[in-house]
Simulated assay, not measured.
Amino acid sequence: MLIYGANGYTGELITRYAVERGMRPIIAGRNETAIRALAEKHGLGHRVFSLDETAKLDAALNEVAMVLHCAGPFSMTSRQMGEACLRTKTHYTDITGEIAVFEACAAADGKAKDAGIMIMPGVGFDVVPSDCLARHLKDRLPTATDLTLAFYGIGRMSHGTQATMTMNIGNGGAVRREGKIMPVPAAWRTREIDFGEGVVKTGVTIPWGDVSTAFYSTGIPNIEVYTVAPRSAVKMMKLSRYLGPLLSTRPIQRYLQSKIPPGGPTDEERAKGKTLLWGEVSDEAGGRVEARMECPEGYTTTALAALNIAEKILAGNFLPGFQTPARAYGADLILELDGTVRENITANG
């Protein structure tokens, strides 16, 4: 296995967890100093190249059965890595949450099948827990036509995650209607979400990856995703409806990116954190079911979920073509991670 972007916050965490599980990945990235230091720390082989260096990229992929791509923003990096995987017949996974990346990967389904490889973007917190919850709800109500998901992350974001969010701040929101992804204004809707145990929060719609992936996992044509955000963040999202073009300009982006603190949560902060999820499906006859889920803090979930899927692929457990986590491995995939619990809520109708 090749871990590309291993020196980023999440990539480094995944590398550490991989070694603790007895895995011996080759790590790679553009920053020679950082990659070499990380390789020496864990006694791993390493490669240094940018994604523009096609010969080096292909050579590295030809050494392994799969890549775990951790270098975002994935809207700027996934195409090159994905095309290289098709050329070298190497399984592709990444930790994206970007709708455009999921859709581009879905469009490569035929090419991936021809190459005999699996393409599975979103093997981390984006979107394994929510994808599995969506599939679980669909299994409980096979006639479902509408899906609503929500999550509440208790913990701190990494520099990379904040950088990607900042880059997309002027792009508005997205939902799925009648099977089609539709643009909507940022912070389009809000609603109260009961995450259980007295935790009731106001959620706001966001263009989360499940707007793409849950459709492939469930076939449900109408999908919305909510998250809990501070009031200041919701105000900024609504403001971006009018200032989107300005916020997307290079000078403003440079300024906003410069204000993002480096690094991410400490091990202690991650241990204290957790993520709560809620989902609901309904059908045209008035049937409705709900479920809740709790899983480890987001970055911990990303590392554990990505490596769990990597181990399956390396053991030969994969489906050729574009796949989502729950479509390939079922709704209970997320329950394989320690610290994850799921609760069904009484159905109405």
Rank of each mutant, 00 (worst) to 15 (best):
M1K: 06
L2G: 09
I3E: 00
Y4H: 05
E12R: 14
R16T: 06
Y17P: 09
E20I: 03
R24A: 02
I26F: 00
G29R: 00
A37N: 13
G45R: 09
R47W: 03
L51E: 03
T54G: 11
T54I: 13
D58N: 12
A60C: 05
C70E: 04
F74M: 02
M76P: 09
M76I: 12
T77E: 07
E83W: 01
C85T: 04
L86V: 07
K89F: 04
T96C: 09
G97M: 06
G97C: 05
A100Y: 07
A100D: 10
F102C: 06
A108F: 07
D109C: 06
G116E: 05
I119S: 05
V127H: 12
V128A: 12
P129L: 09
P129C: 11
S130T: 15
C132S: 07
H136Y: 13
D139P: 10
L141E: 01
T148D: 08
L149K: 02
I154H: 14
G160R: 03
Q162M: 13
Q162N: 12
A163G: 13
M167A: 15
M167W: 08
R176L: 09
A187D: 03
T190I: 12
T190R: 14
T190A: 12
R191E: 15
E192M: 15
K201Y: 04
K201C: 11
G203P: 02
V204A: 02
V204S: 02
V204C: 04
Y216P: 07
Y216T: 07
S217A: 15
I220Y: 01
N222L: 08
N222T: 10
E224S: 14
E224G: 11
V225T: 12
Y226K: 04
V228G: 07
A229R: 13
A229D: 13
R231Q: 15
R231H: 14
L239H: 10
R250T: 14
R254I: 08
Y255D: 12
Y255F: 13
L256H: 10
Q257K: 15
S258W: 05
K259M: 13
P261M: 11
P262A: 11
R270W: 00
G279W: 01
E280S: 14
E284K: 09
A285P: 02
A291V: 08
M293H: 02
M293W: 04
L304E: 15
N308C: 14
A310H: 03
I313Q: 03
N317F: 11
N317T: 15
F318P: 04
T324M: 08
T324L: 05
G330Q: 02
D332S: 14
I334F: 06
D338T: 12
R342F: 08
N348Q: 10
N348E: 01
